[in-house]
Amino acid sequence: MAEPLSVALVGIGKIARDQHIPALNADPDWTLAATVSRSGGVDGVENFADLPQMLEARPDIGVVSLAVPPVPRFAMAAAAIGAGRHVMLEKPPGATLAECHALSAQAQAAGVTLHATWHSRMAHGVAAAKEWLAERELKRLRVTWKEDVRRWHPGQEWIWQAGGLGVFDPGINALSILTEILPAPVHLSRAVLDFPGNRDTPIAAELDFAHPGGAEVSAVFDWRQEGPQTWDIEAETDAGTMRLSDGGATFRAEGAAPVEGPDREYPRLYARMAELVRAGTSEVDLAPMVHVADAFTLGRRRVVEPFDW
């Protein structure tokens, strides 16, 4: 068995504690060798107040995983790549497409791995949905991604600030699945974005896409959902219907065996990162970010009631 890879996890917030740390602790391919956080690290793991300090003190750590908000991520990723470290990016991989292209070029020049991760693509039903759609003619596809921002981002002001993406923070998860499972790419043709009067980012969005075969493809994202949460993708084809639910974890379709299972998204991300590092390659797919950028460019803005916690 190959030696475990040492990783420094930057940003010890909710997503790190809920997903990254359990995934790393359960994987013999990885050793959580250090954390970088101003608000506290992980028991038994060396913590640093900032990334430059860690890079200087721990040249033995070859991988940096960035679980920080998108706006500060570029400078951190560039510093890690400049120090010769492999870099794993939480979604979205950056605040802008230009930043991501710059990081990709820098990583290629430095000969290190850059992995732009899309955790929802690792959900149990996604591969089955991709295979099922590949053999059929799509007629209609509808994405419904509605959740309660107070439940999933309690008190996190950065998501409402410029660069924080607002409802596209979860919505980009749906777009990452959409761009993975469709046999033919689509592009945005219409968008309506609802902005709270006191916020810089949208709380809801309606999207329509142009499909090369004329299929109707649309999405609705909303952060005001109370009660049951909805993360569904439904498709109609010339040979039956398909439904991905629970954020891609559950697959049901006519003529196909159902697929479902426990959450393994982040363990699969780290397994993929280990493969890329050992192979000396990178993986930077920006297709989901293109749709988000197009929505902000093309979208019609509607001002809705202010949002407060």
Rank of each mutant, 00 (worst) to 15 (best):
E56H: 14
A57E: 12
R58S: 06
R58V: 02
D60P: 07
D60M: 02
G62K: 12
V64I: 07
S65D: 12
A67F: 09
A67Y: 15
V68K: 01
V68R: 03
P69I: 05
P70Y: 09
V71N: 11
P72E: 07
P72K: 13
R73A: 06
R73C: 07
A75C: 05
M76I: 06
A77C: 05
A77R: 01
A78F: 05
A79H: 05
A79W: 04
A80N: 02
I81F: 11
I81G: 04
G82Q: 00
G84K: 06
H86K: 02
V87E: 00
L89R: 02
L89T: 00
K91T: 01
A95T: 03
A95Q: 02
E99R: 13
E99G: 04
C100W: 07
H101Y: 02
H101S: 09
A102R: 11
A102V: 15
L103M: 05
S104V: 04
S104P: 13
Q106V: 05
Q106T: 09
Q108S: 15
Q108T: 13
Q108N: 10
Q108F: 05
A109L: 10
A110K: 13
V112T: 04
V112Q: 02
T113K: 03
L114D: 08
H115W: 11
A116Y: 15
H119W: 15
H119F: 13
R121N: 09
A123C: 12
G125W: 06
V126D: 13
W132L: 09
W132E: 03
A134L: 06
A134Y: 04
E137N: 05
K139T: 03
R140Y: 13
L141V: 09
L141R: 08
L141N: 11
R142C: 14
V143R: 13
T144G: 15
K146F: 06
K146H: 14
D148W: 00
D148N: 10
V149C: 08
R150T: 03
R150Y: 08
R150M: 06
P154Q: 07
G155H: 12
Q156A: 13
Q156V: 08
E157H: 09
W158T: 08
I159E: 01
G164P: 09
G164K: 06
L165G: 01
V167S: 01
V167M: 13
D169S: 12
G171A: 10
G171Y: 12
I172V: 12
I172T: 03
N173V: 08
A174F: 11
A174I: 09
I177H: 13
T179P: 10
T179S: 05
T179N: 03
E180Q: 15
L182W: 13
